[in-house]
Simulated assay, not measured.
Amino acid sequence: MTTTTSGTSGTSTTTLEELERRATARRDRPSYGHDALIACDRLVRIFTTDGVEVQALQGLDLLVTEGELMALVGASGSGKSTLMNILAGLDVPTAGAAKVAGCDLLAMDGKARLRYRREVVGFVWQQTARNLLPYLTAAQNVALPMQLKDGRKGGTRQKARRAEELLAMLGMSEHADRRPHQMSGGQQQRVAIAVALANNPSVLLADEPTGELDSATGEQVFAAFRRANEELGTTIVIVTHDQAVASEVRRTVAIRDGRTSSEVLRRTEVDETGQESLVAREYAMLDRAGRLQLPAEYTEALEMRHRVALELEQDHIGVWPDDKG
């Protein structure tokens, strides 16, 4: 038995045996995101306001491997903050799948979600006032998450030592006994990073952590994130509008209209003279449904609207404007 199909690239004939072989291969394929620390699969989040539905996430796919330091960028309303709130356990997706360090974010009850926020993820807010309690010193702020996790049971000396180590790693030892109002904004953010790392989370999330800082101070805060990533191996995801921060990470993912739209990967290359240079390349993202977001400047330049013609070549796919003739 054979099956005949036709399309933009011509006509092909497929045998029943070939279809069975393909089906078997799909069944034996590892599940999507099986080796990723963060896996978002066709993630949907719909908000309803005054009877009007708004789709903040529209089938978003994202994979983050363990140990990555990456940035999420996107215009206001693109869905990046909604995604961060879901990953932080502060919001629940409407549909799709999302897992972080083996935790199913759609299946957790209230108790499991609280434990998740205390033990699996750390979070740094843009507003420094949201990260630290004003009446506690830096060292006390760092020790507090450990006390909450353990129910304030013993181990005071170990908690104090852990707080000292984190503050020292981030260059804040001399400010350990100061309260937030006695520190600058950049110093507060570095203490906030130590607070987020207190319980040794699998993932550290940061929402515009340099948004209220000048460029020089922002560089110091980002250096603290890099040190945490390199010395502790913590996976870090930063939402940012700051292009200086985005260009400092090896991977930057752009979100547009509730989906991942493009990705920039950076790598270091060494030429024949031994000179090192950072090379960046941008890729368009292909989601699990095979959808591709073409850059607006490309489609406008070729007057692509409503539909395009596709042609399968040996090593690429051609995308052509609709033949109006």
Rank of each mutant, 00 (worst) to 15 (best):
P134N: 14
Q126Y: 06
R21P: 00
K111R: 15
K111I: 13
D35K: 04
V142F: 11
T4Q: 07
L90G: 04
T156H: 10
T15D: 00
Q243W: 06
P93L: 12
G77Y: 12
M108E: 13
V308E: 12
E18Y: 04
A196F: 00
M285L: 13
Q293I: 09
T128W: 06
G154Q: 09
D242G: 03
G185S: 04
S247Y: 08
T24N: 03
H181G: 00
F225G: 05
R42F: 07
D287S: 08
A194K: 01
A246M: 07
G211L: 09
G290R: 12
S277I: 04
K80Q: 03
Q220E: 11
G258R: 10
R226Q: 15
V124T: 04
A246T: 07
L63S: 04
Y32E: 02
G77F: 06
V124W: 03
M108N: 05
L114R: 13
A176T: 07
L213A: 10
K99S: 11
G290H: 02
L133E: 12
T24M: 01
S78F: 06
Y32I: 09
E164K: 15
G74D: 11
L213Q: 03
H316A: 15
R259N: 00
K149F: 06
H175R: 12
G211A: 15
Q275S: 08
T5K: 12
R307P: 01
D242I: 08
R152W: 15
D287R: 01
V44D: 10
L294V: 11
G59A: 08
A139V: 12
R27I: 11
V253I: 14
L105P: 01
Q126D: 12
D28M: 08
G318L: 15
N229R: 03
V191C: 05
S76V: 13
R21C: 06
L57E: 06
Q293V: 15
R267W: 06
A25C: 00
R152G: 00
R22L: 10
E66V: 04
A98F: 14
E219M: 03
Q55G: 00
L302N: 10
L60Q: 01
F123M: 05
T240S: 13
R251H: 15
I46F: 04
A224D: 03
S9T: 14
E231S: 11
D50N: 09
A192I: 04
K80I: 14
D242Q: 08
S6Q: 08
D207S: 11
E164G: 10
E18K: 10
V120G: 09
G79I: 03
N131S: 13
A289Q: 11
L57V: 01
I46A: 13
V73E: 01
I38P: 00
V279G: 02
K111M: 10
R179M: 14
G59M: 03
E231A: 10
S247N: 08
S9Q: 08
L213G: 05
Q58D: 14
D257N: 10
Q187R: 07
R118M: 04
E300F: 05
L43W: 07
S202T: 02
L312N: 02
V73K: 07
G318D: 12
L312K: 02
T217E: 06
T299R: 04
A98W: 02
Q140Y: 09
V203M: 04
G33R: 08
L106F: 02
Y135N: 06
K153W: 00
